[in-house]
Design a protein around this nucleic acid. Structure first.
Lengths: 212, 212
DNA sequence: TAGATTGTTAATCGATTAACAATC
DNA sequence: TAGATTGTTAATCGATTAACAATC
């Protein structure tokens, strides 16, 4: 099904995929069965050309004269992103943001299973959230030695984040989802994805001032 | 001080600014007084050339033969982003994520003042957080008619988000910081900045599977 | 002054858009 | 079949990198 197996697809393309997928969900909800790149262009704001180019990085999912089958394309995009699999996830840092992420059960529902939560604060250790007990951060190494974890979420403050990233990397997580406001250094074997909330807010501030 | 007042600077440049700023804070903390684009390049991973190009979109902050003064550059970048100003902010949606954002007092500290919080749930309305009472969402229009708000944060579920965005836009906010997983439509006068957490997670999933 | 490093122009690279032949 | 729309190649546009003269 996948065509060009070894040519790396550009990050710009990858970051558009979730957006395509989101629009496809909406179309599915509306009961739309097929869609052309032109129509999709009108909805998404991407050019039809770009949509076709993007999708063709992964194979020919459309049909000349017809367009794309919404259901099929939705599933294909999910598969490309790896959303057909399950991921074992642990969360480090159970402050406000950590709690928000842990309680966002939607992630659990679609295959990102939170298996463990760690924190340093004695007040928090021992708490239970959705059947998971918050564990002592001191036990993280030992935990990772026994459990095979796909994704580690860092929701600590920025000062602890690099140390956590080091532990997670040594513990062989495959990816780190970092919410701390630092640029972490991780080994090549580990994928790092950042959510820099303040960067986003600052960008907003910039554009607010331009837009006057 | 600003040079090319009317040529629009590309989004890629703008999104790098917070990152520069973050590195500059670190340097300040270390007591570093001056830095060359070459050194900054080694720290950030951006090329020296790119750093100089980026900064020169806003003026010549460096000095030949010397480099950049860390303190000055830090302040300049802050000014460019608009972080020398204060912003009146309201938050709509006080679920887990909304609470996390509201409790992240750091934003308050640097000038993004949360003046109001709104929610629909009777259980939540009336609660107090950092001196702010959670108000009934039904009162949002009236509130915006009286108060001049710079930024509206949307932390509702995706189904309500567009309606909230409409109210905020009508209520003349200058920018919307959207955490809901939808692509909102807003008038040109309103700046929209999205934090699509799931997009970020999906991207991570993709790269995890590539990196094997 | 000589050395260093900027600001800026020119060259390269990559990503987006346009065009169109292939084909359902 | 004729019409529509893809997949894909070619053209354009923009962003990044390289180079170097200006200058502190």
């Amino acid at each position: 099904m996948i065509k060009k197996t070894r040519e790396k697809v550009s990050p710009s393309v990858i970051r558009r995929l979730p957006r395509y997928r989101r629009r496809l969900t909406e179309l599915l909800d509306k009961g739309v069965e097929r869609i052309s790149s032109k129509e999709l262009s009108q909805i998404t704001g991407f050019t039809a050309s770009q949509i076709r180019q993007d999708l063709n990085n992964f194979g020919g999912f459309g049909q000349q004269g017809y367009g794309y089958n919404v259901q099929d394309l939705y599933e294909e995009v999910g598969r490309i992103l790896g959303l057909n699999k399950e991921y074992d996830v642990i969360l480090v840092g159970f402050g406000n943001l950590g709690q928000a992420v842990a309680n966002y059960t939607y992630f659990n529902k679609i295959g990102f299973k939170i298996c463990g939560i760690f924190d340093v604060s004695p007040d928090i250790i021992g708490k239970r959230v959705n059947d998971i007990e918050v564990m002592d951060y001191d036990g993280l190494d030992a935990y990772l030695a026994v459990h095979s974890i796909d994704i580690g979420i860092i929701a600590t403050d920025k000062n602890s984040a690099q140390a956590v990233a080091d532990k997670l990397s040594k513990g062989k997580v495959r990816g780190i989802w970092n919410f701390a406001s630092v640029d972490l250094i991780v080994p090549e074997a580990v994928v790092l994805e950042n959510v820099h909330l303040s960067d986003s807010l600052y960008t907003l501030a910039y554009y607010i001032n331009q837009n006057g």
